[in-house]
Every structure is written in structure tokens, then in C-alpha cells.
Design a protein around this nucleic acid. Structure first.
Length: 148
RNA sequence: ACGGCAGCUGACUCUAUCGCCGGCAGGACCCUCAGGGGCCCUGCGGGAGGAAAGUCCGGGCAACGCGAGCCACCAUACUUCCUAACGGGAAGGCAGCUGGGAGCAAAGGGCCCUGCUGACAGCAAGUGCCACAGAAAGAAAAACCGCCUUCGGGUAAGGGUGCAAGCGCGGAGUAAGAGCCCACGACAGGCGGCAGUGAUGCCGCCCGAUGGCAAACCUUAUGGGUUGAAAGACCAAAUAUACCGACAUUUAAGGGCUGGCUCGCCCGUUGUCGGGGGGUAGGUUGAUAGAGGCCGGCGGCGACGUCGGCAGUAGAUUGAUGAUAGAGACUGUCGUCUGCGACAGGACAGAACCCGGCUUAUGAGGCUGCCGUUUAU
RNA sequence: GCGGAAGUAGCUCAUUUGGUAGAGCGAUAGCCUUCCAAGCUAUAGGUGGCGGGGUCGAGCCCCGUCUUCCGCU
């Protein structure tokens, strides 16, 4: 399993209508240029076995008129996510939860891969701090309730 | 030689690592009475285009509809052929334009050749429109100056307007004039002859209230049922549940078997279990070999047809073809010891049921045609 | 994937069967006012999305193209 940490297969794509609706109605939002991200923590039983996170990568016709450019941006973004996946999964593994994630590209220029890689570094950093804050708070609350 | 404009061709290659999609083979595990199915691992080989685009036409395919005819609506419009079909293509005719040639004292028209272009049926079926200017914009009505006059009028040669004004030119004729008449010529129509499958061309005769617009209404001919893979077919979890069966049940309604009461039985009620129809999430199919490509022979001017051979085979479904590193070709710039080195660059653009076209986008290089400039002969 | 509309001044829109392209708001200048606003007057601003066609002549007719918007699961 360890040598497949960088994979990004079909099961890890978010494509269920119901989950999408839930994510976009109740999820939280985070902006890191040029990305706009929506995320929501959910119990791991909602996803297939062995999958910690389902991800949607998109960009709109508003920013790129040609299908070629949209494909290119999505491919680069997918590559970035693939290379940053282990640190995100490690956090989720520690707290034993799953994550729904929608990554939107909201700028009208294409950057090179190296630039996007650093942007994604920043994005994952902010996302993990927010995630761990929220998860720790939840766990503390549950332990407090048990004590009472 | 350089430059420009069209059209055609062309669409960088290889290696390694990580990753994605589907195919085949082998193996481990799980489910199932079985057939088989699910999931994971390993190996092998495959994975965007000439326009995949626009959705402008035509067809396959599918569902629904359909007795026939006419009207309406839409589309097409020189001819013949190609094709499954087409609004596409080929060849030809005619018209327009560029260039050249012969001819001529010179120029123009006409003739011949090359190239390009053409939504190219009908305005002599009818209706309508032609601003401003002009007397008058299409009709048998013609003003003013002019010309003529027998002073009643005649005239359409000359002048003006305009995109367009009663076919052109010469002659005869006349008071002056006019297709009023004649020769030649242009245009349109009719008849006949010859050539051609035909469009049409050539010749002869007859005829003439000889402007333009049908991308004005329209006429004629031909074609068109509607919808569009989000079509259609199949499987179907959870939850609720039509219906069926079994069991239990009544202050969780009741009704019937008797006129009343009690018990019993039947129907119902409610609940549990089992079966089960439709339908939702989801999945399978439709769906990838096709009116296909390449090579060669034969037939045809050609589009194309036919026969034989060869190589193969994208199939996603929140939508796969990417990232990184290196090497090699190609182009440009700079440097140069003429060996090469350094730097930069690679267009338009991403399949979604499938074909045939059209249109539009497209860097470097190559080919063809036309035009312009310069040089040499 | 399939289908339907619209592009006119800085903005919102007119312009009918083809004949010199207009209104309101806005802009600029002047008048009025102690000043501002309101009011009055004048002025500028248009390749009619772009390219082509047929017409004597096109915003209008025809073809192609680009952009924007809307509908169908």
C-alpha cells in the first residue's frame, strides 16, 4: 500500500450527486489564489473502503473558453493533489475520519507546474491547520461530555 | 531572385521514473448449489484530430405516428453524371473579371488561349417598388427651350435631371422629324434545320408597347411525418409500499351469520414474518468493424466504380491521454577556429452514438497556380 | 449533446414593408445663483459586432463568422 500513496484513481473522484449536494450546501470554504476550495469532514463509512478523501477538480467556462485550456488546468491540478496527498491522508488517518473536497480554479491564466506546486503547498498547509483545529475541538468536546 | 495572394501537403521523434483509462493472460482472497460474479496484485501490448470545433446540410440507428389527395409552411434551382443520400463533388455550358496572342496605321468592340469567380429557373404570367432630382420612373401619357407650321397644331433629332429616360449607327424620307420605312448590328420571343445525352452553339425565316429589382410578393418544378443517445432497452440496494400467503390481535374502527343477549365462525382492522409489482439512487446496454483506411490491377476525361492483397482496431461518463528528467532532428538570433557552440521557439486546438460533406481556425518546412518589383538573356 | 434569441452613442433603448441614424440619462461649455442642485441653451460623441454578397443605394435583404444571453436531463 505504501508504494501507492501517490495514486489518484477512480474511487477517489467525487462524483455522487448526493455527496456533491451535501458538500456544496453545508461545507466550508477556503481561498488560496488561484484556488477556491470547499471542504467537509464526514464519517469514513460514507466513502468506499480504503478511501480517505474524495476530490472534485473543476474550472469554469467563465475563465477558460476553450476545452483544451480547461483540460490542461485540471490535469496540472490533479498532479499537484497527487503529490500532496500523503500529508493530508496522514492527518485523516490519525483522527479516523474522511473528507470531501472540491477544488475550483478561479483565475484566467495558466501557471507553470512548478508555480502551481508551491501554491498547492500553501493550500494544503492552511487546510491541514484548519482541519486539525476543528478535529481537536470536536474530540475535546466529546471527552468533556464523557467526563461529565 | 525577392515579395504578396490563393489552394494542397504536413501536424516532431526516442528513452526513463511517477500517475490515469479500458483490453488480454496468470495468480491470491470473498460471495454463490452451480453457471458465474466481485475485489486486489503481477505481466504484456493499446490510448485524441485534420479539423475532434461550428452544429450549416445529408444519412444510418431508435422511439412514436401514419387511408388517400389538396392547401399551408420550409428547403433547393443552368445541364449531364457521381453517391446510401445531400444544399456536397466531377465534367461541361453560359456570363463576368485579370493577363496574353493574332489582327489593325492606331484605339475600342468582336475572335482565340491561360487563370480566377458565379445563390446561374422565370420580370415576355400577374402584382408591387424604383427615395432626392426630374415634365415624365414604365404608360401607349410626353412639359420647357429648340425645330417646323397652313398658327389648329406637329415633332421626339439637340439641350437638362438622375443608377436608370423609349435599342445603336447609317441611309431613305419629311414642313420639321421619328423603327414610320430600309441595310447592318445588339436584345428577347416563336417556328424550322444541323451538331450534341443535355445545358447550349451555329444557320435560316417570322415577330417586336426592347429599363431594373424575384438575396420584393410570387409562379413553375423537385423534395420534406415528428423527435434525437438527455432516443431507446434491461437489471435494481435502502426506505416507503399496491397486491398475495401464514401466524397473532381488539377501548389500535367495525360489519355479517338471529328479533335481543352470550359463545363460536367468517370478513375486516392492526402488527410480525415471507413472497412480490411498479419506481428512485446506482449499474448494464445502446457503444465502437465502419456506405472505413492503405497499396496494386482494370474501367472512366473526372468525381467515382470494381477486383485482389495488406495492416490494424481510443471508448471516457464530475468525463482517461498528464507531470518530471534527458537525448536527437527542425527553425531563428548571436558568436565562430567553419568543425561547431550558446540562447530561444514549435501553430490551431481535446473524442462523447457513428458515418459522408461544407464552413471556420492553423507556426516552421515542402509543392502548385496567379500577380507585382528588380536583374540577365 | 440538442435547440432558440440578441448585438445601434459612455449606459438604457427606438428606427416596418431598403432612401441623409434618433430619444432619454450621462459628458463638456455657457446662462441663471453668493455657491451647489434643479432649470434653460448649445456642442461633441456612431467603421450600426466583424467579413463578404446582390442593389443605383443596406442598420434593414442573403451568406459566413465572432460575442453574449436563454431553454431542454
Amino acid at each position: 500500500m505504501e508504494e501507492r500513496l501517490h495514486s489518484f484513481g477512480k474511487k477517489e473522484h467525487l462524483c455522487s450527486d448526493k455527496l456533491l449536494e451535501e458538500l456544496f450546501h453545508t461545507g466550508q470554504r477556503l481561498m488560496v489564489f488561484p484556488y477556491s476550495v470547499r471542504w467537509k469532514i464526514c464519517p469514513k463509512t460514507m466513502l468506499p473502503e480504503g478511501v480517505r478523501a474524495q476530490v472534485l477538480i473543476a474550472t469554469s467556462k467563465r475563465y477558460f473558453h476553450h476545452a483544451v485550456d480547461r483540460n490542461r488546468v485540471k490535469r496540472l491540478t490533479r498532479e499537484c493533489y497527487r503529490n500532496h496527498k500523503p500529508e493530508l491522508w496522514q492527518l485523516l488517518e490519525e483522527h479516523d475520519v474522511a473528507l470531501l473536497l472540491a477544488i475550483n480554479y478561479v483565475h484566467n491564466e495558466i501557471f507553470e507546474y512548478k508555480i502551481l506546486y508551491h501554491k498547492f503547498d500553501k493550500l494544503i498547509g492552511q487546510l491541514t491547520t484548519k482541519l486539525s483545529n476543528q478535529l481537536n475541538a470536536v474530540e475535546q468536546a466529546s471527552t468533556n461530555q464523557e467526563e461529565k
